[in-house]
Design a protein around this nucleic acid. Structure first.
Length: 236
RNA sequence: GCCUUAUUAA
């Protein structure tokens, strides 16, 4: 089993999703029994190719051997259903399972890309209410949700909270803040944050440039682009 | 010896 699992993990991590899924079938044909690690290895592959059918089969197998009770498995199931666009099922698995920080983050991320962005905000508040601390991923998810349903007020509150928790200097959170403020039309605020990021990465530049572009500040966008070239950033 | 969530347009 271990070597099958290792092969499946490698394929899934290298983007060979269909091959990874294929290998789970092959392993069963050769008489091996997939276990909880097999499931957590293959579920992200199902998620990325949005294969709800295969994902459900894995879900069924995990119920049969009881491994759906494993946090790694239930979290991977939540992610798989969310990425397949079935937030209803993701939410159901979430509700029925044990929950940790990753469970909350996974569902926050899932909802932030959906039409129920507000749900991300609920979960973000709920997790700290039940005593699970926020981390970088929680902040990225909830900020992305606020950006997508233009919740300027709530997003600002999250920004304040991130400052208090010292998350605002983390590059990923800072980039999420840029995305949030540019999408909310606050180029000035975004620019202030941008200028204070000491270690800007390509995503920081892209968020800022595209943000200016979307708000019609084309001059600024072009200036920024020249600046970026000057800094020797590997842009795309 | 293998395991889940992670930022920038479409």
């Amino acid at each position: 089993v271990v070597s099958w699992n290792a092969m499946i993990a490698n394929l899934a991590q290298n983007g060979a999703h269909f091959e990874a899924i294929r290998l789970v079938i092959d392993m069963q044909h050769s008489g091996e029994v997939p276990n909880s690690k097999t499931f957590t290895n293959v579920l992200p592959a199902c998620a990325r190719v949005a294969s709800l059918k295969k994902g459900k089969e894995i879900h069924a197998l995990s119920i049969r051997d009881g491994s759906y009770l494993d946090l790694f498995v239930s979290n991977a199931l939540i992610d798989m259903y969310a990425k397949c666009g079935r937030l209803d099922i993701a939410g159901r698995v979430f509700k029925e399972s044990e929950k940790d920080q990753v469970s909350y983050n996974t569902l926050i991320m899932g909802y932030s890309q959906s039409s129920c962005c507000k749900e991300s905000l609920h979960l973000f508040l709920e997790m700290s209410f039940v005593g699970i601390p926020h981390d970088v991923v929680s902040f990225m998810g909830v900020l992305s949700a606020c950006a997508n349903f233009s919740a300027l007020k709530q997003g600002k509150e999250i920004h304040c909270l991130s400052i208090r928790k010292l998350f605002d200097t983390h590059i990923f959170v800072a980039n999420s803040l840029l995305d949030f403020y540019t999408k909310s039309g606050r180029i000035d605020t975004a620019r202030k944050i941008f200028d204070r990021i000491p270690n800007k990465d390509v995503a920081s530049w892209n968020a800022m440039i595209l943000g200016c572009g979307m708000q019609g500040e084309l001059e600024t966008a072009i200036d920024l682009f020249d600046l970026m070239e000057g800094e020797g950033v590997d842009y795309d």
